[in-house]
Design a protein around this nucleic acid. Structure first.
Lengths: 204, 204
DNA sequence: ACAATTGTTGTATGATCGTTCAATAACAAA
DNA sequence: TTTGTTATTGAACGATCATACAACAATTGT
């Protein structure tokens, strides 16, 4: 006698639902993020999702948590220039820098602007991200005894990365991954007066 | 005998519906963009909207058209530096750079990534916008006999503006309009090696 | 083998969605 | 005043939404 379904642990089923949710967001944006579609993607019946997540908003929160966890991970290297390089490469590598992923981000950003719980989580993550980038920039400026407005450059740097994602997502045929990465390096070089230009651009 | 409602011309009613739609997008994103809400905002009954717009998607298309029409308007000045300045000031002036407007943009961007008709209109508008910016940068570079990668700087410039909008929308307390404008000027100065720094920053 | 636990199913529910349409009434033209 | 045009209304429709819940069954512990 074959089992009609397979029981799984709460943790694993939640993981699968989070994955399915991200996939749905990537396919149809927030309009595609429905209970029916998510459950279908996860291969379960409609009733189960409310057993693992009290509400749909709670699932969305967990999805955002998952999508931003890499931002707050401890850096793998200590050198500030290579840290920045890691951030750039991570932002524009073939796995994460993908159309469906970008669509999912757009959908989430739209919700962050509207929903309170998402917003507070976002502000926390974004704050840590910005702090980390600012620290790198400050060290580099100090090491080369340059007079740069660290806060301004950090804001610009973050805006540049997000904006390039946006541009690529909405106008994909205008440039590629490599182009985006090069643009980031060009920005850093220009902002630091090319003092560490070779160091960064040649290391890739 | 008082009239129960006031008849208006098709053109004016469409205008009002477009405005109402933008307001709805600004309040609740794409989830707030419903027939009921839009009609309520416009002060008409639910049935009327399909008389003026065959479908909801058609209204959204018209809304996008309206929100981007300023991008393709003929520049009011000829000097490339002041043209760029106008773009920056227009992007970050008190009227357009507003939370609700930003939310509306986020919602629309999310749809652009998904829907075909919106996407093609967007690519057209974006193309003209980029062309115009590139032309300005090229002239400036030539006038100062500088060797800059115009395409790269144009991409970065557009990404910077969009990214700053995003940052402000999702993390508003971190900076203001003036800060955003200053960041744009700082970027241009850095990218052009400060050769026309005073010219631009002092003119505001 | 049996009982307890709990992950899972599928239906029911009430709300809201976009769209259609016949009836109505405001306004202009005659 | 009368007629014609058409903007406008409000109800009705089927589809889909998020959620609740009772019945069920897979697995674990005994």
């Amino acid at each position: 006698m074959k089992a009609r379904y397979q029981r799984k642990s709460q943790k694993q089923r939640q993981q699968e639902l989070i994955d399915a949710g991200i996939r749905c967001l990537g396919e149809g944006g927030m309009s595609g993020f429905t209970i029916d579609r998510i459950c279908q993607q996860a291969g379960i019946s409609r009733g189960l999702i409310n057993h693992h997540f009290k509400t749909k908003d709670e699932l969305l929160l967990r999805i955002y948590d998952r999508m931003t966890e890499h931002l707050v991970l401890a850096p793998t290297s200590i050198e500030p220039t290579t840290q920045l390089q890691e951030i750039i490469d991570a932002s524009f590598d073939d796995n994460t820098f993908e159309k469906s992923n970008l669509r999912a981000w757009l959908a989430i950003w739209g919700q962050v602007a509207t929903e309170q719980s998402l917003r507070s989580l976002h502000e926390q993550r974004y704050g840590e991200y910005k702090k980390r980038i600012s620290a790198c920039l400050r060290k580099i400026a100090k090491a080369n005894s340059l007079d740069v407005n660290v806060g301004s450059v950090a804001r610009q740097f973050i805006a540049l990365i997000d904006g390039l994602w946006l541009e690529y997502c909405l106008h994909s045929h205008s440039f590629s991954l490599k182009t985006a990465r090069r643009d980031c390096y060009a920005f850093l070089n220009a902002s630091f007066g090319e003092t560490w230009a070779e160091e960064v651009t040649s290391s890739k």
